[in-house]
């Protein structure tokens, strides 16, 4: 390091971040798939509709629709990879998440700095029985979210964090 000041916790050797312990709910794969398919399906339908109305542009629109269709098909294959990469973990002191596929992101927020814990549930998530937990701190980087948890797990998690942060004084900045 050569930075002076404090010493490293485990001297020597290279370190890396280990994956958080818990996976999301397995139904998240289905949720992501449906999400992608609905998105691409709507686009293909729109393109086809426009193509039926406008003759001259049909070739281009068909090409675009084919591309979107391909993307939609690929999105059926990707969610298992996402599922492997998206993980979360809560310890007594911190919330730790990993997300992203091409751009991976690890985030850690100390429990002592948590301001609010929210649960949200979109209509599609509702269908799969999934919940998103949003952990807000005063951080300029925004809230830490865990999307795609089992309802009971999410409720437990929110309750646990709310209890842990209830007696923290100040405004956690």
């Amino acid at each position: 390091m050569g930075t002076g000041g404090t010493s490293a916790p485990a001297p020597g050797g290279t370190v890396r971040l280990r994956p958080p312990r818990n996976p999301l709910d397995a139904r998240a794969v289905g949720w992501w798939r449906t999400h992608c398919l609905l998105g691409s399906g709507a686009t293909v339908l729109t393109l086809t509709g426009v193509g039926l109305l406008i003759g001259p542009a049909r070739l281009w629109l068909a090409a675009a629709a084919a591309l979107v269709l391909l993307g939609g098909a690929a999105s059926v294959l990707l969610p298992p990879c996402w599922y492997r990469l998206h993980r979360w973990e809560i310890t007594d002191t911190a919330v730790y998440t990993r997300s992203g596929y091409l751009w991976q992101e690890w985030r850690v927020a100390p429990v002592s700095r948590i301001q609010t814990v929210d649960m949200t549930r979109g209509p599609l998530q509702n269908l799969f029985g999934l919940t998103t937990v949003v952990v807000t701190t005063a951080s300029a980087k925004g809230a830490v979210t865990v999307a795609g948890l089992n309802r009971e797990v999410a409720a437990d998690l929110a309750q646990h964090l709310a209890a842990a942060t209830a007696h923290i004084p100040g405004d956690a900045t």
Partner: peptide, 16 residues
Amino acid sequence: AEDAVPDLFGPFLERV
């Protein structure tokens, strides 16, 4: 990160 603010990333590091 761990030197600057201990016990945030620290518990989640592993030796390679």
